[in-house]
Simulated assay, not measured.
Amino acid sequence: MSARTGRARLVAVLAAASVLALGACTSANEIEEQARADDAGSGSSGLAVNTSPDQDRVRSTPSDEAIALLPPGLVADGKLTVAVGAFTPPLSFLADDNETVIGNEPDIAQLVADGLGLDLELITTDWSNWPLATQSGSVDVTIANVTVTEERKELFDFSSYRVDNLGFLANANSGLSVEKAEDIAGLTIAVGSGTNQEKILLAWDAENQAAGLEPIDVQYFENDGDSILALQSGRLDLYFGPNPTGAYKAGVAPQDFEVVGTVNGGWPQTAQIAVATAKGNGLAEAITAALNHAIDDGTYAQVLERWGLTSEAIERAETNPPGLPRQPA
């Protein structure tokens, strides 16, 4: 491992065996050492993840088209301020120093800033705070796994950059494959209570039972770690959750996990993840052009590959794509 990149697999929250082994670790450096030991013992060649604060991010180049679309005076200081989270690998989380925010979302933010010819400033924020921060101008944009909805489009403009997918995570070599509702009949599946994936799972189960198929056994756990332990112990067949986290687990520990199926998070509609900007300020068009510039020069694909999210790539970014419909009152 080079001192500059500090490449290591971040497995503390990914595999139950690793969770138990890392229980005594007190720092990210110790976690990296344990991960290297795991690799040496297993011969694994999973996704390598740089958890150091020195990210050596993938960089794009200025796009004349994107720069020309920048609203005059909106980012006059030459800096693009971007709200991101800091708690969910591989989307956005803290590096070894417990201060530097890293992940797919900060890397996408870098590509956008590069395309616009601007410096990047990342502002970590809780999920509940991003709407006010974006509307008030405290930040220029939010890149925090925000799904486009018709209701949100009343207050924000969007530039799409990723498919909103949910994934079925299984133990490696499970032999399972989920492409349609009937594929989960009779299985024991963990899902988060009150989530969109729970709604989909229960709808599929109702469809199956109406067709005379076996019901699923739905299991609820307090946190992601408990679900993973139950999966590896054989108490679960599947864990149904956001695809980025599942794909990341499978990427860094392919000897332990595999994603055996995905479904769009807006099922039966199609949902997209997008950069959010304040409604009507004109920034979205420039951001969309910057994203398409990154798609064209290949840096967008490099970022998604870096974090194990190639399955969520889009062909072109779009300003204000169709959003999920407003829920009935």
Rank of each mutant, 00 (worst) to 15 (best):
residue 81 T to P: 01
residue 81 T to F: 07
residue 81 T to H: 08
residue 82 V to H: 00
residue 82 V to K: 00
residue 82 V to F: 07
residue 82 V to N: 01
residue 83 A to L: 05
residue 83 A to F: 09
residue 83 A to N: 08
residue 84 V to K: 02
residue 85 G to W: 09
residue 85 G to Y: 05
residue 85 G to T: 12
residue 85 G to A: 15
residue 85 G to V: 07
residue 85 G to D: 04
residue 85 G to C: 11
residue 86 A to D: 10
residue 86 A to Y: 15
residue 86 A to H: 14
residue 86 A to K: 09
residue 86 A to Q: 12
residue 87 F to G: 11
residue 88 T to I: 15
residue 89 P to N: 04
residue 89 P to K: 03
residue 89 P to G: 02
residue 89 P to F: 00
residue 90 P to N: 03
residue 90 P to M: 00
residue 91 L to N: 02
residue 91 L to Y: 03
residue 91 L to K: 05
residue 91 L to M: 08
residue 91 L to I: 04
residue 91 L to A: 01
residue 92 S to N: 11
residue 92 S to V: 07
residue 92 S to Y: 07
residue 93 F to Q: 00
residue 93 F to M: 07
residue 94 L to C: 09
residue 94 L to V: 07
residue 94 L to T: 01
residue 95 A to Q: 05
residue 95 A to P: 03
residue 95 A to Y: 01
residue 95 A to S: 11
residue 95 A to G: 01
residue 95 A to N: 02
residue 95 A to T: 04
residue 96 D to Y: 13
residue 96 D to M: 14
residue 96 D to K: 12
residue 96 D to G: 14
residue 96 D to V: 07
residue 97 D to T: 10
residue 97 D to K: 13
residue 97 D to P: 12
residue 98 N to S: 13
residue 99 E to Q: 11
residue 99 E to S: 15
residue 100 T to P: 04
residue 100 T to H: 02
residue 100 T to Q: 00
residue 101 V to M: 07
residue 102 I to P: 00
residue 102 I to K: 03
residue 103 G to M: 14
residue 103 G to A: 15
residue 103 G to K: 08
residue 103 G to T: 07
residue 103 G to I: 10
residue 104 N to M: 15
residue 105 E to G: 02
residue 106 P to S: 14
residue 106 P to T: 12
residue 107 D to I: 01
residue 107 D to W: 06
residue 107 D to V: 06
residue 107 D to T: 10
residue 107 D to E: 15
residue 107 D to R: 10
residue 108 I to Y: 10
residue 108 I to P: 03
residue 108 I to M: 13
residue 108 I to W: 06
residue 109 A to K: 05
residue 110 Q to Y: 04
residue 110 Q to D: 10
residue 110 Q to E: 12
residue 111 L to Y: 08
residue 111 L to M: 15
residue 111 L to T: 06
residue 112 V to Q: 04
residue 112 V to N: 04
residue 113 A to L: 06
residue 113 A to G: 08
residue 113 A to S: 09
residue 114 D to A: 08
residue 114 D to G: 02
residue 114 D to C: 08
residue 114 D to E: 10
residue 114 D to T: 06
residue 114 D to S: 05
residue 115 G to R: 08
residue 116 L to A: 03
residue 116 L to E: 04
